[in-house]
Amino acid sequence: MRRISFLLALCIFAESIALSQVTSTPTRSGWLFLDEEQPLKDNELDSDIDISLSIIKGVSHYLVSKGIILVVTPVPIKARVYSDKLDAPLSLSANSRYQRALDFFKKNNIFAVDTLAAYRRAQRQSPQNLLYFQLGSHWNTRGSEIAAQATAQVLMKLPQIQEIDKVNVSLRRLPPLKTEDSMMKMIRPESTIPIVDIIEYDNPVDVTINSSDSLLGDAVPSIALVGTSYSEKTWNFPKMLAYYTKRDVLDVSLAGQQIWIPMQKYLSSTEFKEAPPRILVWEVPERYLLYPPGGYRVADTGWLNTLP
């Protein structure tokens, strides 16, 4: 346990240093994109992606051994969803990365949500309604809600979902709210493309869950969500997942700690040991597949081996 705590502290420190080095680049369309979303050249980080996918496979095997179903919700990079706003097309390697991950999950019998397909349908239906912030790095509430809907559709096809008590969940749409999600302070100093710092608004929702309506009154939800800053309360992804499944969701997401640390921390927790979920949803931003444990974003190379 001391070893796990030390590794977690080391990983968090490394992550905080790395985050301070993340930069963004403006495009002539007036949008900002994270530089790390695009490798500098094709196949530059293919081996790192392979490592990340193999670790996700290892986590899936670990959960299956305990009778738990893993469902991965990939979060497509903003540059993929809005590639028409880029000054140059995605590299061949970056362009194929998302589908490569989906193909890997299918081949290895890991349930995965095709979030990008859901986004494409939404864009065709109402192209004027954005899914990501123009100047920010995250999805907005609409993007979060569509991802929650797509994830719920996958969950509702699992036989295990029928064994989980339903709860009463209500959703209320709130007035537009100014967002603080902006990458203006992260622009590369050498950038020569002018960009206007516009005010962006989000359309937040309020989701209320009444767990007391559960027939069996489970103390701990049977669906757990491990996620990143995309699952922060700002965009209500966990509660909207509860709304569209009509099941309570235990949110153990951690912002600013990549994808490996939140998962390691949860699987090593007393909460997981004493009340494991039946279904575990892993919200995985596509760009984090570029940074497996042992890379500059995460210090620990053997954390999966530390799990009980």
Rank of each mutant, 00 (worst) to 15 (best):
G256Y: 03
D213I: 10
L177R: 15
T192S: 14
S20T: 08
P285T: 01
K106V: 00
L86A: 06
A152N: 03
V22G: 00
G227Y: 00
Q258M: 06
T141R: 11
M1T: 09
L216G: 12
S191E: 07
P127F: 13
A150W: 00
T151C: 05
I55P: 00
K85Q: 15
N109L: 08
K106C: 04
E200P: 05
S83G: 02
A224H: 12
A275C: 11
Y62A: 03
Q123P: 01
E271G: 06
M184C: 09
S214G: 14
F133L: 02
R172L: 13
K78G: 01
L131W: 08
D213G: 07
I17L: 15
E180K: 14
L290Q: 13
K239Y: 04
K185R: 09
V281W: 05
F6P: 08
Y201G: 04
T228A: 02
L158V: 05
Q160I: 11
I187Y: 11
P74V: 02
L63P: 03
D103P: 04
W235D: 03
I12P: 02
P26K: 10
P194Y: 08
P159G: 03
P159W: 12
F133M: 08
E283R: 04
A94I: 04
P276T: 11
R121I: 02
F111V: 03
R124V: 07
F105T: 05
F104C: 09
P194C: 11
Q38W: 07
S16W: 09
L53V: 12
Q21C: 10
V72E: 04
L131F: 07
L215G: 07
N95W: 11
K239G: 02
G143K: 06
K66S: 08
N43Y: 14
T115E: 05
A122V: 01
I49D: 09
V75T: 02
T306R: 15
D48V: 02
T27E: 09
R3Y: 00
L45V: 07
G217Q: 14
W139N: 04
I77H: 02
S52V: 01
D218G: 09
S269I: 08
P292E: 05
D48E: 10
V71K: 14
Y98A: 11
P127Y: 14
W260F: 08
Y243Q: 02
A148V: 05
V298K: 11
T25V: 06
S24A: 15
S229K: 03
I4A: 12
Q162D: 10
Q125E: 15
A150R: 00
K157N: 09
L70F: 00
P285R: 00
I193A: 10
P292Q: 09
R124A: 12
D181E: 15
V252L: 03
G58H: 06
I187N: 12
F272P: 11
E37K: 03
L19E: 01
Q38L: 12
D87N: 11
D300Y: 08
I51V: 11
G295Q: 05
W282M: 01
R287G: 03
F6M: 13
V298C: 15
V196I: 14
I12T: 13
T115K: 01
N210V: 10
W31Q: 04
T73K: 06
D300I: 04
M263W: 03
P176L: 03
K107S: 15
Q21W: 14
S5H: 14
T115P: 04
P176S: 05
V59T: 04
S52W: 06
I56D: 00
I4D: 09
L90A: 10
V205F: 12
L130M: 10
S170K: 13
S54C: 05
